[in-house]
Amino acid sequence: MTVAVKIPEDMELIYEYPEAMTTTYTHYCPGCPHGIVHRLVAEVIDELGIREKCIGVAPVGCSVMIYKYLNVDFVEAAHGRAPAMATGLKRTNPDKIVFTYQGDGDIAAIGIAEALHAANRGELISTVFINNAIYGMTGGQMAPTTLPGMVTTSTPFGRDVRLAGYPVPMSELLAQVEGAVYVTRQMATDLVSIRKTKKAIKRAFMVQLAGLGYSSVEVLSSCSTNWNMGPWEALEWVKEKMIPYFPLGTFKMTDEVKALKVK
């Protein structure tokens, strides 16, 4: 329901619905940062004017239906295989902009080999990686990024590091390989961090436009439903509990990437 409102003539438009998003309602839970990051990707695509030549690769996870929400071409990959599919797409269509949108269960568990090797080969693709420390879609089981001691449905007494190991620092791993040129970790929990995340996503897309190499943006995010918290409380929890294990920052940025001017 959109109510027709008369806008006074002396007002100018500051923010409107991005062109690269469809008007479909999302299926995400209330307050899910997936919606925020979808919007940031759409805004970046609009600002760079690349909507007509963008191809996204959707993951398996909560964001599996991103192809319904972004108004760009999309393909759906098998679980974890988004970087492999994006590699094929980019090599056969070098004039297109190919990006993958993946969750932590997708990139850090079943798809860690594909992601690391795509980065190592220096494929000209961009990855947006949402880390919320849990498998959201399947009902809140332990993910590789789950924090030690964190209670999930498959670790009811908390993650025991002697049995299940420590959280996988995905961005630090990706930063080690030669082919990755821009690897950063941001969060989408408050106004400042959301603006920084948008800038990082824009830089990642510009890296691909300039043909420099593999770029990845990890975004710390929340899952209020499976963490059993309210939306705002969950965002506060990210800042308080996740930052010690997943410090924010840019882990790799070559001089050519640094030279790109991101407005």
Partner: peptide, 17 residues
């Protein structure tokens, strides 16, 4: 600010020129 954090793109914002 509301439009920046909204996960469902609910807001359209105008400001006086």
């Amino acid at each position: 600010s509301c439009a920046t954090i909204c996960p469902d793109v609910v807001f359209t914002v105008y400001r006086k020129k």
